[in-house]
């Protein structure tokens, strides 16, 4: 799976390119927030409540008179922070645990990993988050922890299967014969060969994380302070019944675009990185 071939495949995939552009656009927006250029006044009540869009407030204001444009733009940063942290940590965790389980397949290590995966998969996700949030009493990272603790299992399952396959390859056996330690072989020869799985899984975890944030923030166990699309949507549940849709439209449209972009990108990457060549 050469990088060049992968890129060629991706370039020919129009939907995938659109996805990539959307994701890069949002990353740029997040960067402007990180740099302090956009979205800084998200918490100030800078106008009357429920102003319609105008030159000062491009998307209007919410029920507290806060600027909806600033809030929805600042939420891009929140989404990327949650998405990146959860995607990177859960994928890395899944890769490490999966590689160990696959390498030592049918040993006690593998047995306990599969047991833990079964246990975590058996607890309905929102209840698991509720339990963690309850145990941690409103720590802001309770949500991150809960997502990481559950999202690694899929990556681990896929990496484990790959590691089991790689274990019997000649070059891995050769490395063993040369006296390399297990850890070194896993690091040098097993994990690099699972990159195609990890990239796709990371995009899937990113999407899952920002979608989950919305639900959890609505339930009151998500983002604790700051602003996010989930909190904006939770606010808007009050507003839509009074006929004010700006908050709802801004938050849901941006959320939808970013998730769609990642979904398209993830599908295209899955096709492009599939070692069997053909796409689905």
């Amino acid at each position: 799976m050469g990088t060049r071939r992968t890129w060629a495949h991706l370039k020919g995939d129009r939907a995938g390119l659109v996805g990539l552009l959307i994701v890069l656009f949002f990353l740029g927006v997040a960067a402007t927030v990180w740099l302090g250029w956009l979205g800084q006044g998200w918490s100030e009540a800078s106008g009357g409540r429920w102003l319609t869009p105008n030159a000062d407030h491009w998307f209007g204001t919410n029920l507290l008179g806060q600027d909806i444009f600033a809030r929805s733009v600042y939420s891009v940063r929140t989404a990327f922070e949650i998405g990146l942290v959860v995607a990177l940590v859960s994928t890395a965790l899944g890769a490490g645990i999966g590689a160990l389980a696959g390498w030592y397949a049918d040993s006690w290590i593998d047995g306990s990993v599969m047991w833990l995966k079964g246990v975590l998969d058996a607890i309905p996700f929102y209840l698991f988050v509720a339990a963690i949030a309850y145990a941690l009493q409103g720590q802001w990272w309770a949500m991150h922890l809960a997502m990481i603790a559950t999202f690694w299992t899929t990556t681990a399952r896929l990496v484990r299967a790959e590691a089991m396959k790689l274990r019997s390859h000649d070059y891995v056996r050769a490395a063993q014969a040369m006296g390399l330690t297990d850890m070194r072989i896993i690091w040098r020869h097993v994990l690099p060969n699972t990159v195609h799985i990890l990239l796709v899984q990371a995009t899937i975890a990113f999407v899952a994380a920002i979608k989950t944030e919305v639900i959890l923030s609505f339930l009151g166990i998500g983002v604790q302070d700051g602003v996010s699309w989930g909190l904006m949507l939770a606010e808007s549940t009050q507003e839509v019944l009074a006929g004010h849709f700006a908050n709802f439209i801004a938050a849901s449209a941006m959320l939808f675009l970013l998730v769609l972009g990642f979904n398209l990108l993830s599908d295209a990457m899955q096709d492009a990185l599939d070692p069997r060549g053909g796409g689905a």
Partner: peptide
């Protein structure tokens, strides 16, 4: 459909 949040 998969890209639209349940809450939305």
């Amino acid at each position: 459909g998969m890209s639209i949040s349940f809450l939305v």
